[in-house]
């Protein structure tokens, strides 16, 4: 596997031979992939193939059983989510990691709170949250509102906004479009494209809608049976090919 990506820039993230099991269940057998600077990588695969596990390893939530991860050319051992964050990796989880009983701005600054001598500086968090959401064009009228009162799309936007403004260099998005209507999903896709435009943020997006994948991602990887079995620039493939590859395991053998 080449160290240098097609566009000439060095890899920001390199995963080599990572494996992970949970008791008797092997989630990942031997996964290797790379992510270049400013790249958007689409990760696809059937349900249960291990995509979420891979993202959780990269975000610092799980520790791999074996294999190596390198960031910006240096090997790293990600000890925790906080540690991964400090190294520039942030995640938008499938369940959004939002607390329904807390306000929008408290959620956006969870574990990143502004404090003055140990006391929360709510005023400062409030205004910064307002500014951030406005700059993204997200429609949330009141940052004091409890997240429980917001729609799915609004919540997704908060989760993404949290990562966008977190100074992360690598953002992992686990099924950001799941359970979303067309209009709300459009906002997320726009955010992903805007991030790509910035050029200094790399993303890995897990998705099931191959049309979206081809539209927003530079490259696509297929995770199958605990391994990456397909790794191609999106320009060189099509929805039909992806469908065929993913469905291959279920086709009956020719008589």
């Amino acid at each position: 596997m080449s160290v240098v990506a097609d566009n000439g820039a060095p890899d920001v993230l390199r995963v080599e031979n990572v494996a992970k099991s949970f008791g008797a269940i092997t989630a990942l057998r031997d996964v290797s992939l790379r992510l270049g600077k400013g790249e958007v990588l689409g990760l696809i695969g059937d349900n249960g193939a291990g995509k979420s596990t891979l993202v959780k390893i990269l975000s610092g939530y799980h520790r791999p059983d074996s294999g190596e991860i390198s960031l910006f050319g240096e090997p790293v051992h990600l000890r925790s989510v906080i540690h991964a964050r400090s190294l520039g990796i942030d995640t938008v989880y499938q369940d959004l990691a939002l607390v329904p009983g807390l306000s929008v701005f408290h959620n956006m600054f969870l574990k990143r709170e502004h404090t003055r001598l140990g006391v929360l500086n709510n005023g400062s968090m409030r205004s910064q949250a307002r500014a951030q959401l406005d700059s993204l064009g997200v429609n949330i009228p009141d940052v004091n509102a409890e997240v429980a009162t917001l729609s799915g799309g609004q919540r997704q936007a908060i989760a993404v906004a949290r990562s966008v403004f977190s100074d992360a260099k690598i953002i992992l998005l686990d099924e950001p479009l799941a359970a979303m209507g067309a209009k709300e999903g459009g906002l997320i896709l726009k955010l992903i494209r805007d991030l790509r435009e910035r050029g200094d943020v790399s993303q890995i997006v897990i998705a099931h809608n191959y049309l979206h994948v081809l539209e927003t991602c530079d490259r696509v990887c297929l995770l199958q049976n605990g391994r990456i079995t397909f790794d191609r620039p999106t320009a060189e493939t099509s929805v039909e090919e992806l469908l065929t590859l993913v469905g291959a395991e279920y086709r009956a053998p020719d008589a």
């Binding site: 989510v81 369940d95 607390v99 807390l102 969870l110 140990g118 006391v119 929360l120 709510n122």
Partner: peptide, 24 residues
């Protein structure tokens, strides 16, 4: 209401996994 401990207590009760994913 005014300390991170309080916020995190609410977070753990409201979405334990989510709170953990956020690094609490």
């Amino acid at each position: 209401t005014m300390t991170p401990w309080g916020l995190h207590t609410i977070a753990v009760g409201g979405n334990r996994i989510g709170a953990s994913e956020s690094g609490v």
